[in-house]
Design a protein around this nucleic acid. Structure first.
Length: 403
DNA sequence: TTTAGGG
DNA sequence: CCCTAAA
C-alpha cells in the first residue's frame, strides 16, 4: 500500500487541476496537489483509480486524442517485457515529427500519458498494472486520431523533451553508477516529472480560457452564423480602451501593425460588445471621413470605408454614416450659433474645430444626406436659405437655370 | 449586400 | 452603436 500511495502522490504532482469555469472544466496547473489527493490516495478499487486517470478522459476534454500509428501500436505484453524506461526504440532512432510548440496541449497530454506509463512500470503492484492496462487500452482503442506526434509515443516524448538520455539504455544508468531498479525508476521519473512540471506552472491565460469556453459552447450549440456586421470588427485590447479615454486630444491613431494585432485579437473574441467599449472618433478620423465624402459623396459608405478606413478595422460603413449624421447636426447647430440664431449648444466635450464644421457644412450642401433631399417630390419647393447664401459653391441645385 | 432611418 | 426594412 505504501507503494501505491507513493505512486499516486507522484502522479498527483504532475497532474493538472481541473478548474470549473462557466460550466466547463479547464486544466489549470498544479502547484499544490492537495485538492485532488483524495481522488488518488488509497483507491478503493482498480475501477475507481481507472476512472480518475484514464487517458481518454484527458484527450476527450482537450479535444485532442492520442495517436498510435500502425507499426507503433503498443503491444502490452511486449511492452511489459521491457524493463524500466526501455519503452520504445533507442532514442537515436526515434524521430519526432511536427514538434511545434503550438500544439502544447496535445504535447502535454502525451507527455503526461508517457509519464504515467513509466511510473506504472516501476511499481508493479496490482493497482499500477491496472492503470497500465487502462492506459494502453486507451491508446489502442483511440487510434487514428491526430496528435502532432506519430510513432512510438514514448519515443516522441523523450525526444521532444531532449531528455532521451533518460532512456534506460543501461549505459546511461551504468554510467551513473546506479544499479537498483527502483531507484533508477524514481530518478528517471522524477526528472521527467520535473521537466513536465516546469511547463505546467503557468496559469492558463485569459485568452485560453475564453477560447476554451467559446469553442466548447460552439461545439454544444452548433455554429451560429454571425451577423453581417461581424465582418467588420469587434475590437478588444487595453490599448483600445486607453484610446477611448484619450479621445480627440491624442491623435495617435493605431498604426497598421497595431490594427493587425487588434484585428487578430478581435477575431478571437467574437462576442465583443462594442457598446461597452465605444471608440471615440479622433479628429483625424473625422477629417478622413470628410475627405472621403468630398471624394465619393454620401451614401457610398462602403467605398469610403474601403479606401480611407482600411487601416481602421473598427469603423464599419455604418459607423461612418452615423458619424456623418452627427457631423451634420453639429455643423448645423454651430453655424446657426455663429449667425446668432438661438440654438441649443450641443454638450460636446470636445467641440470640433470651426473650420472642420464649415467644411462639413459645405459638403452637406454638395452631397445632401438622403433624408434632406426632399423625401417627397416637392417640385415647387424653394431651396433653403443657407443654400442660396452659399454662393461660393458651384453646385447646381434643382431648377436653377443659367441665364 | 448595402444603405437608410429610427431607436 | 444597434436593429430592421428596403433597395
Amino acid at each position: 500500500m505504501d507503494q501505491e500511495v507513493h505512486f499516486c502522490q507522484k502522479f498527483t504532482n504532475m497532474n493538472y487541476h481541473w478548474v470549473k469555469m462557466e460550466g466547463s472544466f479547464l486544466p489549470a496547473p498544479l502547484n499544490e496537489s492537495n485538492e485532488v489527493d483524495h481522488f488518488l490516495v488509497e483507491p478503493k478499487s482498480d475501477h475507481e483509480l481507472g476512472n480518475c486517470l484514464r487517458v481518454q478522459d484527458f484527450s476527450r476534454d482537450f479535444g485532442y486524442e492520442i495517436q498510435t500509428n500502425g507499426d507503433a501500436e503498443v503491444d502490452e505484453n511486449s511492452f511489459r517485457q521491457n524493463r524500466g524506461l526501455q519503452l520504445g526504440k533507442p532514442s537515436s532512432e526515434s524521430k519526432s515529427q511536427g514538434s511545434s510548440r503550438s500544439d502544447t496541449d496535445a504535447f502535454e497530454i502525451s507527455e503526461l500519458s508517457a509519464t504515467m506509463v513509466m511510473e506504472a512500470e516501476f511499481n508493479n503492484t496490482p493497482v499500477e498494472r491496472s492503470l497500465t492496462r487502462e492506459l494502453f487500452s486507451g491508446l489502442r482503442t483511440r487510434g487514428g486520431c491526430a496528435t502532432p506526434f506519430e510513432g512510438n509515443i514514448c519515443d516522441t516524448i523523450l525526444d521532444n523533451n531532449n531528455i532521451h538520455k533518460f532512456n534506460t539504455n543501461e549505459n546511461y544508468l551504468e554510467n551513473e553508477k546506479i544499479s537498483d531498479e527502483n531507484v533508477k525508476g524514481d530518478i528517471v521519473a522524477s526528472k521527467l516529472a520535473s521537466c513536465s512540471r516546469e511547463r505546467r506552472l503557468r496559469k492558463p491565460t485569459r485568452r485560453y480560457i475564453e477560447e476554451f469556453a467559446d469553442s466548447k459552447s460552439e461545439n454544444n450549440k452548433g455554429r451560429r452564423k454571425p451577423p453581417t456586421k461581424d465582418k467588420y470588427l469587434k475590437v478588444t485590447s487595453t490599448e483600445e480602451s486607453n484610446h477611448i479615454r484619450q479621445g480627440f486630444l491624442s491623435e495617435d491613431e493605431p498604426s497598421a501593425t497595431e490594427c493587425k494585432n487588434v484585428y487578430s485579437s478581435a477575431k478571437i473574441c467574437k462576442k465583443y460588445d462594442r457598446r461597452k467599449h465605444q471608440k471615440m472618433w479622433t479628429l483625424t478620423e473625422v477629417m478622413r471621413l470628410v475627405d472621403g465624402i468630398a471624394e465619393y459623396g454620401t451614401g457610398r459608405w462602403t467605398r469610403i470605408k474601403r479606401h480611407l478606413f482600411a487601416s481602421s478595422p473598427h469603423r464599419t460603413p455604418i459607423d461612418l454614416r452615423d458619424k456623418w449624421r452627427n457631423l451634420l447636426k453639429a455643423s448645423c447647430v454651430n453655424i446657426q450659433n455663429s449667425k446668432g440664431t438661438e440654438c441649443k449648444q450641443p454638450h460636446a466635450s470636445r467641440p470640433l474645430p470651426k473650420s472642420l464644421l464649415q467644411r462639413v457644412y459645405e459638403l452637406a450642401n454638395i452631397y445632401p444626406y438622403p433624408k434632406e433631399r426632399s423625401p417627397k417630390p416637392v417640385r415647387e419647393a424653394t431651396p433653403p436659405m443657407y443654400l442660396i447664401e452659399s454662393n461660393s459653391l458651384s453646385f447646381n441645385w434643382g431648377r436653377k437655370k443659367y441665364e
